[in-house]
Design a protein around this nucleic acid. Structure first.
Length: 519
RNA sequence: GCCCUCCUAGCUCAAUUGGCAGAGCAGCUGACUCUUAAUCAGCGGGUUGUAGGUUCGAGUCCUACGGGGGGCACCA
């Protein structure tokens, strides 16, 4: 197979490669649309074809990652002896920089592991090869075979012996020093961003490592990965507005899921004791640096566990992600640093409330006065809601984290099991880092009768615009078959990646964030 | 949905109070066999997001629209 493929490799400087004649070049110039950079590149493409080469390349086996080539040990130079032989290497990548120097040219070739210099000398490659090398543009994809050595200035270099054309770039790359900075173009044309801004590529490769690490940690702890419907007749498991879609044959309106929760809990009923899903959820709400309409969530459920088990799991997951990235626990965040060294503090909601709001949370009147002083309207509001708003205003932004906020007022999390010792407190935690809510977990409610009542209460309180919410009778029926007491966890993968990769916007960790169409 | 703000060459950015739209990179031509964002000489490249308006004159001021960014609202 490899030998067959070999014949298709189109070498640059076969001795027989013809040199374009002066008259051909003159013709070429006159045909060129003067104001088009693309036209100039199309012309080069035709020249490459005229030389019998395929500008779009073929399979290119056995090339080495540039990063690994950079690790190759060079033979020692011995005094008085000839130059030591150069180790042979084969690389493939994109030309990101080009420096002509008369009858020699230096290229910087980049793949997804790194960048290395290649040198092409006219005397080394012959007239035919040199003619083609002259047509190389920034952005073209090439394979380089050659010897690895140092230049006079000590730069590690592949001294080209043959090149393989692997792809012609018809559009010019962004500015070589600044790269592509326009945030809109970087998102819309992510291919350009990835190809020419190495730090962007690294961020997305980092995101992939985070997700892989999650799967590894969960697997080691005995969780199984499942996939549940993203198109649902009843979009439950969270309080968010769904997207609507339609199945033609069934003539059925469906919702894109706002959470996988209710399906994963059905699996707990079915005896899948540790399940997780990493998947997209869709919420038809505003867009911000922390919100994209579709985002990726981990949800994990552990039968016979509780929210404390989920806290341990959360810590293990994020530690696993950091180890997969680089093992550095003190991480930059803007101008700031975040220290992820575990264990992270676990503080109760009321404790933090007392500390940051300076008010006793159970003293409704004191809380109301504090709220008014913060400019929060209190008229007609439930005292628990006011507590929650004061908490958000005074505590959340002040939490540098990582910190687990635990034991929430039961009134603001109705679908959570209450503490046996104190029915006013729900067994819930949220993990905060720099004001960002990274994870949310509960000891899950498994009482079908209470669940049904809460559904009804939720529906009664529904606004007209949210009227697509429906009672999920099947979920209640599932609980009636007995769901084991369980801990449940949700982690926003995108937000975690923002924190770990030091990106200010969720759009910097989502390959193709939602945008209005061009034009 | 509301408020603020940005949009100039392929890319990165200038343009004084409203007064002839510029530079660097990239491109093209030429020189150069060890460069490092190579350098040097020369050349080309624009419906200033779109449409109106004010003005002798608009990249600049006004209005609407489109797109982006930030904020508010929304968001267990």
């Amino acid at each position: 197979m490899a030998l067959t493929e070999n014949r298709h490799w189109l070498k640059f400087w076969l001795k027989s490669a013809p040199v374009p004649s002066a008259s051909t070049q003159g013709l070429v110039m006159s045909e060129e649309t003067p104001d088009s950079l693309e036209a100039a590149r199309l012309e080069k493409l035709r020249k490459i074809e005229a030389l019998g080469l395929d500008p779009w390349g073929r399979r290119f086996d056995d090339h080495q990652a540039i990063e690994s080539v950079r690790q190759v040990a060079l033979p020692e130079k011995v005094e008085g002896a000839d130059e030591p032989p150069r180790p042979r290497v084969r690389i493939a990548g994109r030309i990101v920089l080009k420096r002509g120097q008369g009858k020699v040219a230096f290229l910087q070739v980049r793949d997804w592991t790194g960048t290395i210099q290649a040198m092409i000398g006219k005397n080394q490659v012959g007239e035919g090869g040199w003619a083609i090398a002259s047509e190389l543009d920034l952005g073209d994809l090439i394979g380089v075979d050659g010897g690895l050595g140092l230049t006079k200035t000590g730069e590690l270099t592949v001294f080209a012996e043959s090149l393989t054309f692997l792809g012609k770039s018809l559009l010019p790359p962004p500015e070589k020093w600044h790269g592509l900075t326009d945030i809109e173009k970087r998102s819309r044309q992510r291919y350009v961003d990835l190809a020419h801004n190495p730090e962007s590529l690294q961020a997305f490769l980092g995101r992939s490592k985070v997700v892989s690490a999650f799967r590894k940690v969960l697997g080691e702890k005995g969780f199984v990965e499942v996939e549940t419907p993203t198109m649902q007749a009843i979009a439950g498991g969270a309080a968010a507005k769904p997207f609507i879609t339609h199945h033609n044959t069934l003539d059925l309106d469906l919702f894109l899921r706002i959470a996988p929760e209710l399906y994963l809990k059905r699996l707990l009923v079915g005896g899948m004791e540790r399940v997780f899903e990493i998947g997209r959820v869709y919420r038809n709400e505003g867009i911000s640096p922390k919100h994209n309409p579709e985002f990726t969530m981990l949800e994990a459920y552990q039968a016979y566990g509780d929210y404390h088990a989920m806290m341990d799991l959360t810590e293990a997951l994020i530690v696993g992600a950091i180890e997969a990235l680089d093992g550095v626990y003190r991480r930059p965040w803007g101008e700031d640093m975040v220290d992820f060294t575990p264990p992270w503090p676990r503080r109760t909601y009321f404790d933090l409330f007392r500390e940051y709001a300076g008010v006793e949370p159970t003293d409704s009147e004191a809380v109301r006065i504090k709220a008014e002083s913060l400019g929060i309207a209190t008229a007609g509001k439930d005292p628990d809601v006011i507590v929650s708003e004061v908490f958000e205003e005074t505590v959340e932004d002040a939490l540098h984290g990582p910190i687990f906020v635990i034991d929430y007022p039961a009134a603001i999390c109705p679908l959570t099991k209450r503490k046996a010792s104190d029915p006013a407190v729900a067994e819930r935690f949220e993990l905060f880092v720099r004001g960002i809510e990274l994870a949310n977990a509960y000891t899950e409610l498994n009482d079908p009768l209470l669940q049904e009542k809460l559904f009804q209460g939720q529906l009664a309180g529904q606004k007209a615009e949210d009227s697509m919410a429906k009672m999920d009778d099947d979920f209640v029926r599932a609980l009636k078959h007995a769901m084991p007491p369980a801990g449940g966890l949700g982690v926003g993968i995108d937000r975690l990646c923002m924190l770990l990769l030091n990106k200010a916007s969720i759009r910097d960790v989502i390959l193709f964030p939602l945008m209005r169409p061009e034009q």
